Simulated assay, not measured.
Amino acid sequence: MGIVVALWAAILGALAVAKYRKEAEAERTRIRDMRVVYELQLSREIAARRRHEMTVESRIRRELESESQADTAEQVAALRHELASMRGHIEYAISNTADPRRELTAKPHGDVRELVVSDNAVTDADPGRTEQQHDQDVVDAEFETEYQPSAHAKTR
């Protein structure tokens, strides 16, 4: 009778071991599947985060570029205005110069827009030149703007 009970215990033990093995294998498969699902979700979230970062980065770059272009346009406009003002001062000073030997010079350490008419006769470097030749050189000198092409450019 002890042998029969031992055999039944062995059979029941073998059935329990087989059952627990199947449950353990099912649990390992479930854990592996959950890990795969987790990794897929994580990769999707990483990809979505990268897309979001790229979108934000491109938007910020566009905003910075438009601000930079606006600043540059303002600076160019200010420079054009200053250049036109300086050109006007020079043209005014040249038109008010009665003696062609008088020259325009900038004040030392002063503002470039402040011009002073000087009575220095610098044109006497070539004593063989006549006053008429000097006057012709002054007439040939032209001051042009980007909107008013020179007479030399028209005839060339």
Results as ranks from 00 to 15, higher is better:
Ala24Tyr: 12
Glu53Tyr: 09
Gln148Tyr: 07
Glu53Ala: 11
Thr123Val: 13
Thr97His: 00
Tyr38Gly: 10
His109Ile: 08
Gly128Asn: 10
Ser95Cys: 10
Ser95Asn: 11
His81Cys: 06
Glu45His: 14
Arg21Cys: 11
Leu40His: 13
Val139Ser: 09
Arg101Asp: 00
Glu25Arg: 07
Gly88Gln: 03
Glu23Trp: 08
Asp99His: 01
Leu79Cys: 08
Tyr147Leu: 10
Ser66Tyr: 05
Ala70Lys: 02
Ala70His: 06
Leu15Glu: 11
Asp99Val: 04
Ala48Gly: 07
Glu146Gln: 11
Arg113Glu: 02
Ser85Ile: 02
Glu91His: 04
Arg30Phe: 09
Ala77Asp: 07
Ala125Arg: 06
Ala98Gln: 06
Ala73Lys: 11
Ala93Met: 02
His81Asp: 03
Leu104Gly: 02
Glu45Gly: 07
Leu104Arg: 01
Met34Cys: 12
Ala84Asn: 07
Val117Asn: 01
Pro127Glu: 03
Ala93Phe: 00
Ala141Pro: 00
Arg51Thr: 08
Pro108Val: 09
Arg44Ser: 15
Leu83Tyr: 01
Tyr92Ala: 04
Ser68Ile: 03
Lys19Asp: 03
Gln136Asn: 13
Arg101Ala: 04
Asp33Asn: 12
Thr97Asn: 02
Asn96Gly: 09
Arg129His: 06
Ala106Ile: 10
Ala84Tyr: 08
Glu53Cys: 11
Val139His: 03
Ala47Gln: 09
Asp119Ile: 01
Gln75Asp: 08
Arg80Pro: 00
His81Lys: 06
Glu103Met: 03
Glu63Tyr: 05
Thr130Val: 05
Asp126Val: 15
Asp99Ile: 01
Ser66Leu: 09
Pro127Phe: 01
Arg129Cys: 05
Glu82Ile: 00
Arg113Gln: 04
Ser85Tyr: 04
His89Cys: 02
Ala93Gln: 01
Ser66Ala: 11
Arg80Tyr: 04
Val56Ser: 14
His52Ile: 10
Ala16Ile: 11
Glu146His: 08
His89Ser: 02
Val17Asn: 12
Ala121Cys: 13
Gln133His: 10
Gln69Trp: 05
Arg44Pro: 01
Arg101Asn: 02
Thr97Glu: 00
Ser58Gln: 14
Glu63Gly: 05
Glu114Tyr: 03
Gln133Asn: 09
Thr123Tyr: 10
Leu79Arg: 07
Ser118Met: 01
Leu83Gln: 02
Ala98Glu: 06
Glu27Gln: 08
Thr29Met: 14
Gln132Leu: 15
Glu74Val: 06
Ser95Gln: 07
Gln69Val: 04
Ile60Phe: 08
Ile90Arg: 00
Asp135Gln: 13
Thr29His: 14
Arg87His: 09
Leu15His: 02
Lys107Leu: 10
Arg21Ala: 15
His134Thr: 01
Glu103Ile: 05
Asp119Lys: 00
His89Gln: 05
Arg44Leu: 15
Glu25Ala: 07
Arg113Phe: 00
Ala48Leu: 10
Glu103Ala: 04
Gly128Ile: 07
Thr55Phe: 13
Glu142Ser: 10
Glu91Thr: 03
Leu40Ala: 15
Asp137Tyr: 14
Leu42Gln: 15
Glu74Ile: 09
Glu23Leu: 14
Asp119Ser: 07
Lys19Gln: 05
Val116Trp: 06
Val36Gly: 03
Ser68Gln: 11
Gln69Lys: 14
Ala78Val: 01
Tyr92Ile: 03
Ser118Leu: 01
Glu146Ser: 09
Glu53Thr: 05
Tyr38Asn: 12
Lys107Ile: 10
